[in-house]
Design a protein around this nucleic acid. Sequence first.
DNA 1: TATAGCGCTATACTCTTGTATAGCGGTTAC
DNA 2: GTAACCGCTATACAAGAGTATAGCGCTATA
Lengths: 132, 132
Amino acid sequence: MSRLSKLEQVKNCSGEFVLAVNDTMNVLNGKWKLPIIGSLLYGKKRFKELEREIPKITPRMLSKELKDLEVNGIVTRTVYASIPVTVEYELTKSGNSLKTVLEVMVEWGLQHRKRFIGKKEKAGKNLMEISH
Amino acid sequence: MSRLSKLEQVKNCSGEFVLAVNDTMNVLNGKWKLPIIGSLLYGKKRFKELEREIPKITPRMLSKELKDLEVNGIVTRTVYASIPVTVEYELTKSGNSLKTVLEVMVEWGLQHRKRFIGKKEKAGKNLMEISH
DNA sequence: TATAGCGCTATACTCTTGTATAGCGGTTAC
DNA sequence: GTAACCGCTATACAAGAGTATAGCGCTATA
């Protein structure tokens, strides 16, 4: 196997590289983070706009996830003292830079699908389940 | 904002690119997938070897996660008819190619940490929570 | 006055993940 | 025979993530 570079420390389940991967995972974790971030990649949005754009999300979850993303430095929340108040959510620099990560994930996902479906045409389970 | 290339379809929460990202997420999802894959990046391993290398994992979870990874084409399970039987787990091509994805995630995680800690030295919450 | 939109929060529940602990059938080592 | 290793599985429970539903204080509109 080729050189493992920075991932060498994954093995012992500690070390800063595993922490780093976990940070990334946690930022994208849960059912709603991806839709939210995806939606915000198009620019700032208000609460209700997000709620409308993301099918089936409840205000409770949207609120919770937005708070989470804010606390973790992925989005900023700006309140305008207009009447009535307007609240805008926008990706931070970190948030926007997730685009690169997501694109690599898209790439892997697509290739894996190709390889995987190629291998198993039975497909009763598997990919159907993965992306449920 | 710059061109969003393949991620454009993230917005509507459907389309093959979101599916692809979700595939990738699901493969890495849960508390134990990362340690397991990390461990297997070093080459094939037996059940007990994995159990020993991954602190605090229970055989129940190891078994479950390995099955999951196998079903999703990330690892192969090979049983040798030795006495007693030996079972070896090894990353598939897809599994090995996750290395690239993980490295991008490491990169993002590290940069985000730098940016984030730079911004907020209060740190009472936040990063400490992220990588808990 | 009543209705509707905004940006949420509260309460209660279910459903999924993960933990803890025990044990099975087989084999070798003492 | 009994203790220990291998590769698991079974059962029961706890904690967290997500859902369903309601409502709050505010303002603009009819």
